[in-house]
C-alpha cells in the first residue's frame, strides 16, 4: 500500500514532462526527451555526424597513404598503369557525382524551406545520379576484367591491353599490379559508400514523403546530406589521383 502511494506523485510530473499539458509550451514532436530544445538536439546530431566523418577521413586516409607511398616508390609504373584507365568514364562519373551533390544540397534546402515537393524531387534525383554512378562503375570494372587488368594470376596477360611501356619493362608489371589493387580498393570502398548512401536516401525519401522534415526540424535529412557530400569529396580526390596520372601521355585505348 505504501509503495503505490509513493509511486503516484512521482509518476504524475514525469508524465507531465512528456505530454503537452502543464508547462506552458508544447514540445515539438521531433524533440527527443533527453534534449532541452531543437537547437541542442540539432547541434548534437551535427557533432556526432562530423565525428563520424572525421573517422571516415582516417578510414580513407589509410588507403590514401598506401597510394602515396607506392606511387612515390614506383612513379613510372603508376603513371603508365593509370593511363590504362578509362578517363572519359571517370570524368563522366565525376560530373554525375557533382550533380548529385547539388541535388542533395537542394534537398536539404527543401528541408530548410519546408518544401516537401523539393525534398522528394531532389532526393529522387540524388538517388538516380547515385545509381547512374554505380552503373558506369559496373561497365568500367567489367572492362578491366575483360582486359585482364584485375590483380591476379592473369594480370596483364592480354598483350592487346598492355601498353608499350609494360611490354618494354615487364619488371614494372608487379608495380602496376599494386596500382590496380589500389584502384579497385579505393574506388571499390568508395562505391560501397555510394551503395550505402543510395539506401540512406531511399529511407530519407520515405520519411520525407510522410512530411517529417520541416524547417525547424529536418536533422536526419541534413545529416544524410553531410554523408553524401563527404562521399563526393572522396571522389574529388580519387579522380585526379587515380585516373589522370598518365593522362599527358595520351589515351591508350
Amino acid at each position: 500500500m505504501s509503495t503505490s502511494a509513493h509511486a503516484a506523485p512521482v509518476a504524475a510530473p514525469h508524465h507531465g514532462a512528456h505530454g503537452d499539458s502543464g508547462h506552458g509550451h508544447a514540445h515539438h514532436p521531433g524533440l527527443a526527451h533527453h534534449f532541452d530544445d531543437l537547437e541542442q538536439q540539432k547541434d548534437s546530431a551535427v557533432y556526432g555526424m562530423w565525428a563520424f566523418l572525421v573517422q571516415e577521413v582516417m578510414f580513407f586516409g589509410g588507403l590514401f597513404i598506401a597510394y602515396i607511398v607506392y606511387r612515390n616508390l614506383y612513379p613510372d609504373a603508376f603513371a603508365h598503369a593509370s593511363n590504362l584507365l578509362n578517363v572519359p568514364l571517370g570524368a563522366t562519373n565525376t560530373a554525375i557525382l557533382l550533380a548529385s551533390s547539388l541535388t542533395m544540397a537542394l534537398a536539404v534546402r527543401g528541408g530548410a524551406t519546408g518544401s516537401k515537393p523539393t525534398q522528394l524531387i531532389m532526393l529522387v534525383l540524388t538517388i538516380v545520379f547515385g545509381l547512374a554512378f554505380l552503373v558506369v562503375k559496373y561497365f568500367e570494372y567489367a572492362e578491366k576484367f575483360e582486359h585482364h587488368l584485375v590483380p591476379g594470376p592473369t594480370f596483364m596477360s592480354d598483350p592487346a591491353h598492355v601498353s608499350p611501356f609494360f611490354q618494354a619493362h615487364p619488371e614494372e608489371i608487379p608495380h602496376a599490379k599494386i596500382f590496380f589493387f589500389l584502384y579497385f580498393a579505393m574506388t571499390g570502398v568508395h562505391a560501397a559508400h555510394m551503395i550505402v548512401g543510395a539506401g540512406l536516401m531511399a529511407w530519407i525519401f520515405l520519411r520525407a514523403k510522410k512530411g517529417e522534415f520541416v524547417p525547424e526540424h529536418h536533422d536526419a535529412l541534413e545529416m544524410s546530406g553531410l554523408y553524401w557530400h563527404f562521399v563526393d569529396i572522396v571522389w574529388i580526390f580519387l579522380f585526379p589521383m587515380i585516373y589522370l596520372l598518365g593522362y599527358h601521355f595520351g589515351g591508350h585505348h
Binding site: H25, H28, D37, L38, E39, K42, L102, A105, L106, R109, A112, T113, G114, V214, P215, E216, H217
Partner: peptide, 17 residues
Amino acid sequence: AHGHGGHHVHVVSLKMY
C-alpha cells in the same frame, strides 16, 4: 521560420548553390 528558443534555420540562396 524560427523554432523555439531562437533556433535559426539557414536557407542558403539558390544563386550561391
